[in-house]
Amino acid sequence: MHEVLRDQLMSMARYVRDPRHNAPPPGIEARRLAVYRQLFFGNVESLLSGGFPVLRASLGPTTWQALIESFYADYRCQTPLFTEISEEFVSFLEAGGGAALDLPPWVVELAHYEWVEAALLLSDKEEPAHDPEGDLLEGVPLLSNLAWPLAYQWPVSEIAPGQLPQEAPPQPTLLLARRGADLQVHFSRMAPLAHALLVSLQERRCSGRQHLEALAESIGVEGEAILPQGLALLQNLRSQGVVLGTQVEPAW
């Protein structure tokens, strides 16, 4: 008997997920199936509409509806948590989801940009142990877990229904997203050197001097030439809470 019940449930799940390509389960009237479909699909669509308002408005209702239907029908989420469905949607787009809809080329980056705000708001990641007054040049500067350097090919912060880019600009859009003490997420534009420094802090642990010397080498100047500017930048980032301070050496 349990096999029969399982088959019935799977048949219903397949139909509710994608009624255009799956037959309805026998014995259930169409009106009731429509209620189930609207209940489940409507919840997902409502969550994603709230998480991606600019993307939704920029695509328009018809394309947005088709995109969510494709996500709902074709993608298999790796988490049951509603709070993580936005990240799953971004993964769906990054994997080429919705390709049959001929989406604009900026869709993936705009979706990621909108997801970042929710991800930082909900983050419960703890900050590492650090010395807030540590020497940023000789010590190992630590980037806050709530500060993310971002780089996009498309001008994601400017896209809106009336401002849809036709081609990517020659320069990338470099941003810093951070959750402040006010528990709000703030986005700010970054100069290339500042962005490169934050990416360096994010990717490896070494002294501030070593970070700056590596950046100097990458742009073809002497390390000493950018040390004053680089130290001032690190100090400014610390005052904003983007850089926490320096790494605390473990006591053995």
Rank of each mutant, 00 (worst) to 15 (best):
M1D: 10
L5F: 06
S11W: 00
Y15R: 06
V16A: 02
D18Q: 11
I28M: 02
Y36V: 12
L39S: 05
S46L: 12
L48G: 02
L55C: 07
A66M: 01
L67M: 03
S70D: 14
S70I: 00
D74F: 08
R76Y: 10
C77H: 09
C77A: 15
Q78H: 03
T79V: 08
P80A: 14
T83R: 15
T83L: 15
I85Y: 05
E88G: 09
F89K: 01
L93W: 01
E94V: 09
G96L: 15
L101K: 10
A111H: 04
Y113I: 01
Y113D: 00
E114W: 13
W115Q: 13
V116T: 03
E117C: 05
L120Y: 09
L122W: 06
S123M: 03
D124I: 08
D124E: 15
K125N: 06
D131T: 08
P132K: 01
P132E: 01
E133I: 00
E133H: 13
G134R: 04
L137Q: 02
L143S: 03
N145K: 13
N145M: 08
L146F: 07
L146M: 10
W148P: 00
Y152V: 06
Q153P: 00
W154Q: 13
V156E: 02
I159Q: 12
P161E: 09
E167G: 14
A168P: 09
P170I: 11
Q171P: 06
Q171M: 10
P172T: 02
P172W: 00
P172A: 01
T173A: 14
L175G: 05
L176K: 02
V185A: 05
S188I: 13
M190E: 15
M190H: 09
A191M: 06
P192E: 13
L193I: 10
A194T: 11
L198T: 02
R205F: 06
S207P: 02
S207E: 04
H211V: 12
H211D: 15
H211Q: 15
L212M: 02
L212R: 00
E213H: 11
A214K: 08
L215W: 03
L215E: 06
A216Y: 12
S218P: 02
I219Y: 15
A225K: 09
L227A: 05
A232K: 14
A232W: 11
L237H: 03
E249K: 08
A251T: 10
